[in-house]
Amino acid sequence: MYELKYHKATSVADAVAILGDAEDGKVIAGGQTLVPTMKQHLAAPSDLIDIRALAELQGVCIKGDALVVGAATRHADVALHTDVRTHIPALARLAAGIGDPAVRAMGTIGGSLANNDPSACYPAAALALNATIITDRREVDADAFFAGMFATDLDEDEIITSVRFPIPEKAAYAKFPNPASRYAMVGVFVAVLDGDVRVAVTGAGEDGVFCHKGLEAALAARFTSAAVDGVDVSEEELMSDLHGSAAYRAQLIKVMAKRAVIAAG
């Protein structure tokens, strides 16, 4: 790993100020993506600004008819939190299925969304649940937040502070994990919100997470696993790599969508 200067931020405002002064600064939360990337010399920030322990970024609460999760809340804590398990059990299960226990003990929701790995789990939940990403300066709808592989609408020095999830009538996430990395080969998050059906697909799109309009229309008409059969899932714009071809991923999208619909009940 290259040399760097470490800073422990005392507040979000402090972190933004240090970021502004740094030559090539980056915030670090759980470090479960950033540290491996730095070890492989794929990232070489001059300064790291640690926001993991900031009190203003922790915890889960219910606000009105939504569930709000602090950006530095770790996967293991989302998985076990009573409010998450009661109101959006699909989100608790998704968090419980990320990587392995040691990754979940450190990794955070804010880090996952900011990183927007095309095979990550949380982006699918945020998109399907029509979440709002709250930052130090504004609020962004999930639809406008994800901007292609490893890209988001965040400014260079912008920090996610929390994520607001509307509470769905029904929701479930089905993931086919890559047996080596545990990331999604394909993951499908299905949600019914105010009568609308939203279906977000991760692990498959060449541009990262996306909503599948065909599946949404079919499931809006009939919310059954059989409704998925009639949908044409094209392999165009899907990833092909050593783990699987685009055609294989297209097939997996249908299988995961069915499993999610059955789990959502």
């Binding site: 470490y6 422990k8 670090i28 470090g31 479960q32 540290v35 491996p36 070890k39 790291l48 640690d50 993991r52 293991a76 226990p101 040691a102 990754v103 003990a105 450190m106």
Partner: peptide, 20 residues
Amino acid sequence: LVHVDGRAIKACTTLAVSLD
């Protein structure tokens, strides 16, 4: 794997300074 403040974490994926 080591235990830090009661949680098992990967020592290879954590900076020592961050655990002061």
